[in-house]
């Protein structure tokens, strides 16, 4: 009915052109002035809100000691055997990976157990059997007893601080193992450099070095190869990457790092080929060399372990 009415009324009579332009110009100026005034008020409101928010965040964070609440600092990547997390006055078993651990969390592995955590920032922390730690905060933890392995290859720019009864350990972008047992602190450095800050001295260990510091502060230094079998426990518990649909180079880089080997290709053509071969499968749960064996069997590539080098070649025979 409205449509019929509009049709019946017909077209509206157009105003004179000069009168129309004059009215339009005046209306536009008035609108612009009002909009500018509204923008100024809006900016002030937002600035005040941001200040209040910043103050609130600051108050709830470590800027104000004593006000810090639990912050997620690690994720459980893998669990083998019995691993327990601390609860109020007790321990509860942890069976499934995927859980998040916050500051103040304690974790222990029993005999035969081991665990792998991904720390905030991407570093990989692995706990051997009979180990107990406390996650003090981001990039800070305490090793009460047992053995841990830290691979900070993912974010080498920032180190981690590990408090032990024998001193505080700081890494500088590295792979290392730390053991606290019988009042002895043992440090094995696989890659990079690690510093130990004791009350009265500063020690440093470099790649290929092993340091033992006894209860009286005596330091014994010896050597350890990056491919030594002593690292195997850490390789075994280390979480594997998701290589499904990924080029073979992803797998090769991971295996080389996990086993402490240099990755070398037989030729540039083989390297180029490895970058184009796409792998399919799930290697979670496989040790690095086992995963390598399995995956390369499905390709036209093969590997050879020569000293501390892992060489990738074109397969000569199936």
């Amino acid at each position: 009915m409205v449509a019929a009415l509009i049709r019946t009324a017909g077209r509206r009579t157009r105003p004179p052109e000069d009168a129309y332009q004059q009215v339009l110009s005046a209306a536009t100026d008035a609108f612009r002035a009002k909009a500018a005034q509204r923008r100024d008020r809006t900016w002030l409101v937002w600035a005040a809100a941001a200040g209040v928010a910043a103050l609130a965040i600051a108050l709830t964070q470590q800027w104000i000691p004593g006000a810090t609440g639990p912050v997620p600092v690690a994720t459980v990547a893998r669990v083998i055997g019995t691993v327990e997390s601390g609860t109020d006055g007790g321990w509860s078993p942890m069976t499934e990976p995927g859980g998040t651990l916050a500051t103040g969390a304690t974790l222990r592995t029993l005999a035969g157990g081991s665990a792998a955590l991904v720390l905030e920032g991407g570093a990989s922390l692995r706990l051997a059997a009979a180990t107990e730690i406390l996650l003090d905060g981001p990039r800070r933890l305490s090793l009460h007893s047992g053995t841990l392995y830290l691979d900070n290859g993912a974010s080498p720019g920032k180190g981690h601080q590990i408090a032990t009864p024998a001193g505080t350990v700081r890494d500088v972008g590295t792979q290392f193992e730390l053991r606290v047992a019988d009042s002895v602190l043992r440090l094995r450095v696989r890659e990079g450099r690690v510093e130990i800050d004791r009350a009265d001295q500063m020690l440093s260990g470099s790649a290929g070095e092993q340091l033992e510091i006894d209860a009286l502060g005596g330091v014994t230094r010896s050597g350890i190869s990056a491919t030594d079998t002593a690292w195997q426990w850490a390789e075994t518990i280390g979480p594997a990457p998701d290589i499904d649909g990924q080029p073979a180079t992803v797998l090769l880089a991971w295996v080389a790092r996990e086993t402490g080997r240099q990755l070398r290709y037989e030729s540039a053509a083989v390297e180029a080929r490895a970058a184009t071969v796409i792998l399919h499968g799930n290697i979670h749960g496989l040790a690095p060399l086992a995963a390598l064996e399995v995956m390369l069997a499905t390709t036209d590539l093969e590997h050879a372990l020569i000293g501390d080098t892992m060489e990738i070649r074109a397969r000569t025979e199936q």
Binding site: H280, G281, T298
Partner: peptide, 22 residues
């Protein structure tokens, strides 16, 4: 072949293969 293999995997068969062969 790849679609068929993924179907096998979806049905619970654990397979490893690569684009070198498939």
């Amino acid at each position: 072949l790849e679609e068929a293999l993924e179907q096998f995997r979806a049905d619970g068969l654990q397979l490893f293969y690569s684009s070198d062969l498939v």
